[in-house]
């Protein structure tokens, strides 16, 4: 049988035998906290801290939608091509269908539920300006717009269009989004 290298779970040192590894652990990591096993992640979703065990093949979408029950984000294409599954990760809009949940350890996620719970004026503006028909793409647009306004509180109409250019709407509601986002931008920066 071939000897497999053993890698220390604390640092990246490799060892040929369990005994060498044990000696190293006693010498260097005696007082260190035991590192979590692969698949155990801690993350913050809409302000709430979670510690979860996930499978390698779960996407972030599956985690928030199927396992945490946050059904706002919608899966449309499941291939990174439509933006309907957009969530905000560490301040940036990303596609939850193309991110592995197991790689989200230590991140802060905001979904459309979080945007609504915080009473963000985007929600009312979207309703007021009818920025949806079937509504399937809407949570993705709202999260993308929220991340834009956090990053750039006074975007131009062109900047709004560029920021939303990764979100598809089969119902063709595009013009309304710019109107709604610019109105919210004015409202938020007026005071």
């Amino acid at each position: 049988m071939e000897t497999k290298d053993i890698t220390c779970p604390h640092c990246e040192k490799g060892f040929k035998s369990p005994d060498e590894m044990k000696a190293h652990m006693l010498a260097d990591h005696r007082n260190d906290e035991v590192p979590p096993p692969e698949g155990h992640i801690r993350l913050t979703v809409n302000g709430k801290a979670y510690a979860l065990d996930v499978q390698p093949n779960w996407t972030l979408y599956q985690l928030v939608h199927d396992h945490l029950g946050l059904t706002g984000a919608k899966q449309f294409c499941d291939r990174g091509a439509c933006g309907s599954c957009t969530v905000i990760m560490d301040g940036k809009p990303v596609l939850s269908c193309m991110i592995l949940a197991i790689e989200c350890d230590g991140t802060t996620i905001e979904t459309v539920e979080g945007v609504a719970a915080a009473g963000h004026p985007l929600i009312d503006a979207y309703v007021k300006h009818h920025a949806m028909q079937c509504g399937y793409c809407t949570p993705g647009f709202v999260t993308t717009s929220k991340a834009l306004l956090d990053d750039n509180p006074r975007p131009t109409a062109h900047e709004v269009k560029i920021a939303l250019s990764g979100n598809l709407c089969r119902c063709g509601t595009y013009p309304q989004h710019t109107i709604a986002v610019l109105e919210v931008s004015q409202k938020l920066t007026a005071s």
Partner: peptide, 8 residues
Amino acid sequence: ASPQLRNM
């Protein structure tokens, strides 16, 4: 690609 994909 798109803004989201460029973030990733």
